[in-house]
Design a protein around this nucleic acid. Structure first.
Length: 361
RNA sequence: GCAGGGUUAGUGAAGCGGUCAAACACAACAGACUGUAAAUCUGUCGGCUUUAGCCUUCGUAGGUUCGAAUCCUACACCCUGCA
């Protein structure tokens, strides 16, 4: 496999910064990617997203498959034309929904059946169909359809079962992906990420990583973390995997967005991460501030506070001088612009973390 | 002036003899949120202490009753008809 990742410097003992190339251009790492589940980063226009330094946006296979459907989006020119984001788009596989919508789904060897949340009809997602949907959506980076389970209350045999199924499914994903993309020019070909599972079992995790590294994928994703196991447990897994990573491929930590968690991840070999946290928290009036602390803008103490969220922040909201008092008021009266401004701030906060790492030697 | 209806905690509004410190909604206050069924959800919301409990409340003042936000009387204010 061709060397894909160009390293430009080290971050601590295990981390690194550099770039890799997608069919929509280079992505500099470490990077944080906001989730635009339904084809947009909620409450933000593409220019606003880009203004924060975001390079890649996520979209979700599960949601877009249900509505409006990948065929509709394909007909409209794919996700880039549909939502207006011109940078690389990474689609998630739908595997997470198997976990988060657990009581309505049934996992079998073939795939996952679930009830359509609106129509109630029975639907099936398989590894093959997930890949097809992601390609129809026009994704530049795809994620293999995996099986994750909650870590806090799962039994070892369930973890093993999910681990084994994830790898059987990975084979099916790579086959389907290669079948559908082999005729493309290399420069037009999207990238597929395989997913490492194995719960909190470090041996299983290492084994899983080796299996993904040995498979025909362009990137390595680490899944099944930040699902309730606690920060210590997650750090243990990231630490165990850090020395084993493949230098030639980007490594993507799925679903992590706490600033402190991201720092740890980037220092332990992770190149990219996605999360709903910065944008969801922002819409819920919680913003990140220096020291990786959080500020609740609806608190009454901000009622006449003239300061921006952070004096030295260069995000649009802070640089424009929007006061905490203004933001608090707009939240109190349910004006969505407050959530938009805070989404910009929170994304910028995470991108600033990434940028700090990108100058390391 | 006559007849009828009303007055409940910050607001709106249930309750119409005991299980009522009083449903519910909103507001207020605090919190949660990690591959988005999330511009969502949770808790508090008379006072004091706080598993429990005690005290003061349902326009005001009396009364009936073992017991009243709930029944009776008077008064105050508001609304609707007829004059």
């Amino acid at each position: 496999m061709a060397k894909m990742f160009e390293e430009l410097g080290k971050i601590g003992k295990y981390g690194r910064h550099g770039y890799f190339t997608t069919r929509r251009g280079r992505v500099y790492t470490p990077t944080f990617m906001p989730d635009g589940t339904r084809g947009v980063v909620k409450s933000l226009l593409p220019d606003q997203v880009a203004s924060t330094g975001v390079q890649v946006v996520l979209a979700n296979t599960y949601h877009l498959h249900l509505a409006p459907g990948e065929k509709v989006i394909k007909k409209l020119g794919g996700l880039h034309a549909f939502g207006g984001w011109q940078g690389p788009i990474l689609t998630d596989s739908g595997g997470f929904q198997v976990f988060s919508l657990g009581k309505f789904t049934k996992v079998s060897e073939e795939g996952v059946t679930f009830k359509h949340p609106i129509t109630g009809e029975k639907r099936l997602i398989t590894p093959e169909s997930s890949i097809r949907v992601q390609l129809d959506l026009g994704a530049d980076m795809l994620v293999a359809f995996d099986h994750l389970i909650g870590l806090d209350k799962s039994k070892p045999e369930d973890v093993l079962d999910a681990f084994e199924r994830t790898h059987r499914w990975l084979d099916r994903c790579t086959k389907e992906f290669n079948r559908l993309t082999k005729s493309m020019k290399p420069s037009d070909r999207p990238m597929l990420f395989g997913v490492v599972q194995g719960g909190l079992d470090l041996d299983l995790r290492k084994k899983s990583l080796e299996l993904v590294k040995a498979s025909d994928v362009g990137g390595i994703a680490i899944g099944g973390l930040s699902v309730g196991e606690g920060q210590k447990a997650m750090f243990k897994v990231l630490s165990a995997l850090a020395p084993l990573h493949d230098p030639s491929r980007p490594r993507f930590l799925l679903g992590v967005g706490e600033p402190a968690d991201l720092r740890f991840a980037y220092e332990h070999g992770i190149d990219m991460a996605d999360c709903v946290l910065p944008t969801r928290n922002a819409r819920h009036a919680t913003v990140f501030v220096s020291g990786d602390k959080k500020m609740h803008l609806t608190n009454s103490k901000f009622i006449s506070d003239p300061n921006p969220i952070e004096e030295d922040c260069d995000c649009f909201a802070c640089a424009s001088g929007y006061s905490r008092a203004f933001l608090r008021h707009q939240f109190k009266v349910n004006e969505p612009v407050a959530g938009s401004l805070c989404s910009i701030h929170n994304l910028r906060y995470l991108e600033r973390i990434c940028e700090q790492y990108r100058v390391a030697k």
